[in-house]
Amino acid sequence: MIDSQQASAALNDINDVVHRVRQSRIYQNASLIIVMWGALVFVGYLANYTWPPQGYTIWAVVDLIGIAGSIAIAAFSGIGPGAGAYALRLLVAFLLFIAFGIFCSAVLGHFGPRQMLVFWPLFTMLFYALAGLWFGYAFIVIALCSSALIVTAYFYAGPALLLWMAVVHGGALILGGLWMRRI
């Protein structure tokens, strides 16, 4: 038989492993969503560069596919009976995020196309950073690296901003998502 100190140490060990498993599952599911968004925005920037007048349509399509894909991944993530509620919360979060973003950029701010191009990715990265405070440092690393690259692009990319954004925003999300899977 063991004493209460040894029993307490064993329970602490169990709690540590359970915490690691939960963290790992969050990273596995989130990384799929992040890589998918990375690929989508990469294509979106290239399409926007190729057909500039179609910008709003292109980004509306990218967002719709991304939101539907994120919800599908959340719903079929294998997190158990709570998957449906998780997917619903994700949909509400996306709707609030978009509504607030539109209000800031179009109603309060009247941003031009160049500002719009960097506002949405930076706004997204803010949420990644906030998510990182609860779900793990990987989200914060991805948010900080992407944000730094996006701000650099805004000031220095000139007319090649869309191409630069395809690489630094889309590329950072894809690489960040793949890195997250390996942690």
């Binding site: 064993a10 060990d13 492993v17 359970v18 498993v21 939960r22 599952r25 294998g78 158990g80």
Partner: peptide, 19 residues
């Protein structure tokens, strides 16, 4: 009760059944 087997079982038990 063996420490590593305890960790293995804790990890597997934290997953939904049959995962």
């Amino acid at each position: 009760h063996q420490p590593l087997r305890l960790r293995i079982m804790a990890a597997l038990h934290a997953l939904p059944a049959s995962t």
